[in-house]
Design a binder for these strands. Structure first.
Length: 423
RNA sequence: GGGGAGAUAGUCAAGUGGCCAACGACAACAGACUGUAAAUCUGUCCUCUUACGAGUUCCAAGGUUCGAAUCCUUGUCUCCCCA
């Protein structure tokens, strides 16, 4: 199955310039995708683009990831309704290094002709003066052309700085430079990048009469069309320090059937037959959640590691699989290891001496709830469990409730677990 | 430049002197049912609080009034129509 055909099957293809597919079927092509260093880690949404590069490489082509040391200094207006604050050069540099490491985990940099590369567009912009740029590049594109882009049109009402307006030209020049110096013939990206990408192909055509291609993919969305990759606690990051592997795994396991079917096409390297087999198995015994688990396992291993997945599975087993009787069999080290630091709270043992009110413990002594009122409301709504037993307001919590004289297992809702350690 | 409409909680959107912490819808969170799913039903949903209650809200600042989201003044911003 060809690269484009593959994307089509996975429902990932959004738009493609004519003859691109023929070109890809004919020869090894070098293509790039740009990454904006707006944060110090990629999040799951960005990951679909890295997967596109990976698929591209597996199809026998050469992928290049461009980190935006230059473009990141300017700021892409696409999809933004208001002018953004500029990042300082130090932040851009820091973010870019972090993202580079993450992207590197996905691709193969040592497989001969189609080895992947990561380059930084700052390298070809740093010695390019403003005057040179507006003479050598700006002269080839009319303002009329740039003005027609959606990313600009959407901002005409509320205003847009010259800086952001010029963004498409800066990104367009990237494409030109890569085309000229690295033989890149194709730029890919999310569907919001179409305008920026074709400014590049236009530049190549006007400066040198060359031809280059564009291909965009569907932006990942939830089943209801809302933003993907956000949870109550915020975005899901690839950086294990920002989103623990356990949380990461849980994010995928928790998706609905509909979304899991969509996402496995986007984020799994499994082929059509394998995915369809898993779906069939899932539909025969949906309660086993085969689809979600297959997705979560594969993605967790790719982003983190086998070892991280193993730990995430162990934690899942401890928190979801077992009764309190089984939980009690674990030793202290195993219990503490199962909880991330942001769901672990330490309190003084003394507060349990005469028994303590659940509201105070959960809403004040710990930050499991933001206030006592919140804690009370959720407890009243039957939403809190202590050591796997539903909690009510009258229930006093005493030293007898502490496992090993130290641990208290708290659940908020069905799947948010907390550990209180009494010292 | 002239004329008109508007700004209400995360979003949309009622409310036009006391019954307003403010109808309703969506989102979000929780419960039941399930499969850590969906759909459905139920509860919560400005903040804090020992279900009492307290505090701060309806663009901003002043004012009228016993009492204002609602009336008046000024300012800021948005939208529409005519030039």
């Amino acid at each position: 199955m060809g690269f484009v055909e593959e994307l089509r099957w996975r429902n990932l293809l959004h738009d493609i310039t004519p003859e691109t597919e023929e070109l890809l079927n004919k020869e090894m092509v070098t293509a790039y995708i740009g990454f904006d260093p707006t944060a110090d880690s990629l999040q799951v949404g960005n990951m679909s683009q890295v997967m596109t590069l990976l698929r591209f490489q597996k199809a026998g082509h050469k992928p290049i990831a461009v980190v935006g040391g230059a473009t990141g200094m300017v700021g892409d207006p696409s999809g933004k309704s208001v002018e953004r604050n500029l990042l300082t050069p130090e932040v851009v540099q820091f973010n870019l290094e972090a993202q580079k490491k993450q992207i590197a985990k996905f691709l193969d940099f040592d497989c001969g002709a189609n080895s992947a590369e990561i380059v930084n567009n700052y390298d070809w912009f740093k010695n390019f003066s403003f005057l040179e740029f507006i003479r050598d590049v700006g002269k080839h594109i009319t303002v009329n052309y740039m003005l027609a882009k959606d990313s600009v049109q959407n901002r005409l009402e509320n205003g847009m700085s010259f800086t952001e307006f010029s963004y498409q030209l800066v990104q367009g020049y990237d494409f030109y430079w890569l085309w000229k110096h690295k033989g890149v013939k194709l730029q890919m990206g999310g569907s919001d990048q179409w305008g920026n990408i074709v400014t590049g192909t236009e530049l190549i055509r006007r400066i040198e009469g060359g031809s280059a291609h564009a291909l965009t993919t569907q932006l990942v969305k939830k089943a209801d069309g809302t933003k993907f990759g956000k949870t109550e606690g915020g975005a899901i990051w690839l950086d294990p320090k920002k989103t623990s592997p356990y949380k990461f795994y849980q994010f995928w396991v928790n998706t609905s059937d509909l979304e899991a079917a969509m996402h496995i096409r986007t984020f799994s390297m499994k082929n059509k037959e394998e995915i369809e087999a898993i779906e069939k198995e899932h539909n025969e015994a949906p309660h086993l959640r085969k689809l979600q688990k297959a997705l979560a396992e594969e993605v967790t291993v790719r982003v983190h590691s086998e070892e991280a997945l193993k730990r995430a599975l162990e934690t899942t087993e401890i928190l979801f699989g077992s009764s309190f009787e089984e939980f009690k069999k674990l030793d202290g080290e195993e219990i503490e290891g199962a909880f991330d630091s942001d769901v672990t709270y330490r309190v003084s043992k003394e507060i349990f001496l005469n028994g303590t009110e659940p509201v105070g413990l959960l809403g004040a002594d710990t930050q499991i709830f933001p206030s006592k009122g919140e804690a009370r409301k959720t407890i009243q709504g039957n939403g809190v469990s202590l050591n796997k037993e539903k909690l009510n307001l009258e229930r006093k919590i005493s030293a007898d409730d502490l496992l090993y004289g130290k641990y208290l297992l708290v659940q908020k809702g069905k799947n948010k677990h907390f550990l209180i350690i009494a010292n």
